[in-house]
């Protein structure tokens, strides 16, 4: 059987999700953002909620997320995506509202917003991309940067005496009564990406049940900021990031 006989529409087992627009993503080669965008687009498509979904963009690399997924979007000020999502969800309770934030946005300038949105138990989904660095501005230290990790502002490695300790946001918000589903995932392999997709889908389903805030942390890479190739960055993430940020479900109020 030759290749042209196999390349027929009825034989397709995987293709670009219909909800992703044709715009070329501005992300660096191998960036985890693209993979997570794709998962979100697939889930919204599969759930058939394109007309009922409102995303809230952060400030950071993913500020242009509205160019890539064909749904309604709202741009928020730096760190304020959970506040904007709160308003959107309260004004349109039948919509699916999610925020898409990086660690510089959510864990640093937006800490107050995310803690209080979790504490209030808003029925939104928070997708948190944690790559331990400020990617867009040139690789400075973020609150989630690991001890000893070299960045533009910690060239000798993060020193806890000078720079403090990494902030583990998912474990923090799991203590709050307003959160319903907290999980930490990654997208470096096909198996991990499928698990992450199932987790994000569960989060969207929980947000329509009115049980509280769903928080999906994706441990990601920033190969440009870390100054590695995409494949090496994935290996480095598995070896170092997973020790501080282990993947798995942290909280699930509806678990049997």
């Amino acid at each position: 059987m030759n290749i042209e006989d196999i390349k027929r529409p009825e034989n397709i087992v995987y293709k670009r999700p219909a909800l992703l627009t044709d715009n070329v993503m501005h992300y660096c080669p191998g960036c985890s953002h693209g993979t997570v965008h794709k998962l979100v687009a697939e889930i919204i498509d599969e759930m058939g909620i394109q007309e009922k979904t409102v995303g809230v963009c952060p400030v950071g690399c993913s500020v242009f997320a509205y160019n890539y997924i064909d749904i309604d979007w709202q741009e928020a000020a730096h760190g304020r995506a959970p506040a904007v999502a709160t308003a959107t969800k309260r004004l349109y309770p039948d919509k699916y509202v999610f925020t898409y934030q990086g660690d510089g946005d959510l864990a640093s300038i937006g800490t107050a917003e995310i803690i209080h949105a979790c504490s209030r138990g808003e029925n939104i989904v928070v997708i948190f991309i944690n790559n331990g660095i400020y990617g867009m501005t040139g690789g400075q230290m973020a609150p989630t940067t690991l001890i000893g990790m070299k960045t533009a502002t910690t060239p000798y490695g993060r020193d806890p005496k000078l720079n403090g300790f990494p902030l583990v946001i998912a474990d923090m918000v799991a203590q709050l009564d307003g959160t319903a589903f907290i999980t930490r995932q990654s997208v470096h392999t096909a198996a991990a990406a499928r698990k992450a997709k199932a987790a994000i889908r569960k989060a969207f389903e929980y947000s329509s049940k009115g049980v509280g805030l769903s928080f999906v942390e994706i441990v990601s890479t920033c190969n440009s900021g870390w100054k590695m190739s995409p494949v090496d960055a994935n290996k480095w993430m598995v070896e170092h990031m997973f020790a501080k940020y282990p993947v798995g479900d942290i909280k699930d109020v509806l678990a049997k």
Partner: peptide, 17 residues
Amino acid sequence: GACGVVCPDSVITVYRV
């Protein structure tokens, strides 16, 4: 389909028979 799932830019279409 593993390549398609992990592709950050979603440029891979996978066919199977």
